[in-house]
Design a protein around this nucleic acid. Structure first.
Lengths: 233, 233
DNA sequence: TGACAAAATAAGTAACTACATAATATCATT
DNA sequence: AATGATATTATGTAGTTACTTATTTTGTCA
């Protein structure tokens, strides 16, 4: 009597993954069809489908209807990042969170902001500059633009009590989010606000969010020296 | 006669998402059980399950057996990054790719590298410093450590023809990958190699890969001024 | 009351079926 | 040989059933 070991889709995935790693299938090669693999491994096609979906999500494999499944010829490193609310981030690192509203003004979006949102018409916005603090020391300096067309009610919110970052995340969920990472040199104003040397290398995260096609907010978050962003484990 | 509209799991996902966005369910609230939602929306539980899985993946919702599904109380921005082979990246931007091997040596892992790999024993490694070029101009400077225990055959590879980056990606797939982003100031050596001013702010990507528990490689990739990393659209 | 066993619950997984859809291949027609 | 209709094919999606597993609740006994 044969012992029927029930394969989970993870087992199947690992099996296929292993077959690719070991070189049995090289970049660009076509894998057998799901149904055949299912028969080989003695499981249902849906299990193979699930496994393949995962491999496809992680960028190892590409699937096309009728075309079948093939190993990606130009492999990519695919990683997932979690970016928490700044308050949460500070608290998780064991710091005491605080924040300061530096400036708040209402103007039309400048060209740079119009460009990030792909806007062609003038667009009224609330600009908020704020400093996030950890244990009373500067942690992140944010320069934020909020669409007054999409989020008119923000005008009435007291952004000294709750940061714009937190208010938006809790009250204005988004549909689409673009992130951009780069480095800048601290100019005198930034250096002054962050209490660091002018010219220091700073890591910057720019985040732009939309709901459907409507712009919500774009923010440039300038971190303090030594800041590191890690992929989630 | 009732027209039976077949709901896709995406529809269900959007429906639930919408319910959360509109405030019907707030942060921390528990959602109805899958089976009830299925009945409400007149679809199968498996469809709801799929939808919920997606919402859970994207960080909007948390699920626990028996505990049910609840809206994350501390929402996170979750994003996916694709990091291609450097050659591919240069070519995609329309540049002509080139690379130079700067230095190649064999030593035991220094403490910093042992730390990234969580090693306690001395570990023989190949250290490779190389410069990636776009149209003949410096693009990325990489300082790489390769485990000679996990990847002994790299000793015999000519890393002037093919970059270590490319050889590894094509020949040594990994299981686990940690990424780390930060900014540094160019010291005189880096500035010299990248042909930029000393003190320029540079964006750095550090990548460490393993196969199962075995270390493969860790690399510090120092980009040139103006470099930006974007989330995949 | 406290500790531990048993029941209940809600999500997780797998199989199987049926049909949808995208992409390709084939073949007839001009 | 070019064109366009049609068949074929492999993945994608939905439904249903059955069972698993983690977790909490409940209940019993000491």
């Amino acid at each position: 009597m044969t012992t029927t070991i029930r394969l989970s889709w993870r087992d199947v995935r690992d099996e296929i993954h292993e077959a690719i790693l070991s070189g049995r299938y090289g970049p660009g090669d076509r894998l057998p069809r799901d149904a055949d693999i299912a028969q080989d491994l003695n499981c249902a096609r849906s299990t193979v489908q699930r496994a393949m979906q995962d491999l496809s999500d992680s960028g190892l494999v590409e699937r096309r209807r009728k075309g079948g499944t093939r190993v990606r010829s130009e492999p990519v490193t695919r990683a997932t990042l979690d970016i928490p609310i700044t308050r949460r981030e500070v608290e998780q690192k064991g710091g005491r969170y605080g924040h300061q509203l530096i400036r708040r003004s209402t103007t039309d979006a400048p060209r740079s902001v119009m460009a990030t949102f792909e806007l062609t018409e003038p667009h009224p916005m609330l600009r908020v500059e704020a400093l996030h603090l950890s244990d009373g020391r500067p942690y992140i300096l944010e320069d934020r633009w909020i669409s007054l067309e999409t989020v008119p009610e923000v005008s009435g919110v007291d952004l000294t009590t709750q940061s714009a970052n937190e208010w938006l995340v809790l009250n204005r969920p988004y549909n689409r989010c673009d992130l951009r990472f780069y480095a800048i040199s601290a100019n005198s104003r930034v250096a002054d606000l962050l209490q660091i040397e002018t010219g220091a290398a700073l890591f910057v995260v720019e985040r732009t969010t939309w709901i459907d096609k409507a712009p919500i907010t774009t923010v440039q978050a300038i971190t303090t020296p030594g800041y590191q962003l890690l992929t989630r484990s």
